[in-house]
């Protein structure tokens, strides 16, 4: 994985050179998909370090759904990442939603940048649904989202809003919290 990260930064370096020398769509295309490959794996890993309320699954066979709201930046890489994987016995599936009204039965919802303008409304709508909201929109966790991706020194890190997590009845692994920048007190 560090291999891929190294490669990522190297490619990003190449991309900047290309950008300044006139820019090329193809290289940009590759770059974005590499970044989202990492984010897709992180989405899958969140499933392993976050616990949902025990009564949220009616039985063990119920799939754990990862939803993508808005334009899908992952292509089929997310599907490939979760294919065949299980968390706590629940098989993982990916569902895509165009509108927030369609979102249903998700454990993890990734909100695409395409939805950044109406983020406030989306978060308000989803307040009743106990789910882990994730997005790479700027200040996502500060505005009430649970986990927001940030890029620090060319590395992908994340912030966790403990108040939002508590509202959604989520329990974060201490190991996950150690890696994250914490937003909110968690005391609400």
């Amino acid at each position: 994985m560090s291999e891929s990260l190294k490669r990522l930064s190297r490619i990003r370096f190449v991309f900047f050179i290309l950008l300044f020398s006139g820019g090329l769509d193809l290289a940009a295309q590759t770059e974005i998909s590499k970044e989202y490959q990492v984010k897709a794996v992180f989405l899958f890993n969140f499933a392993q370090f976050v616990e949902w309320p025990t009564n949220s699954f009616s039985d063990a066979q119920v799939p754990l759904t990862i939803g993508v709201l808005g334009d899908d930046p992952f292509g089929d890489f997310l599907d490939a990442t979760v294919r065949g994987e299980k968390v706590g016995g629940h098989p993982l599936v990916v569902q895509r939603f165009r509108r927030v009204e369609d979102v249903k039965d998700c454990r993890i919802l990734f909100i695409s940048r395409s939805e950044s303008r109406q983020m406030k409304r989306i978060l308000a709508d989803l307040k009743q649904q106990k789910m882990l909201t994730v997005s790479d929109v700027e200040s996502f966790s500060e505005s009430g989202g649970v986990i927001g991706f940030v890029t620090v020194q060319n590395k992908i890190r994340f912030k966790i809003n403990l108040d939002a997590g508590k509202n959604a009845n989520l329990a974060f692994s201490s190991k996950l919290l150690r890696l994250a920048e914490i937003v909110g007190s968690g005391k609400n």
């Binding site: 994985m1 990260l5 992180f42 392993q48 590395k155 994340f158 150690r178 890696l179």
Partner: peptide
């Protein structure tokens, strides 16, 4: 046991 998250989220510092 303590390094699982660091590896999962590629956090060398952790």
């Amino acid at each position: 046991a303590n390094s699982t998250a660091a590896l999962a989220f590629q956090n060398e510092a952790d």
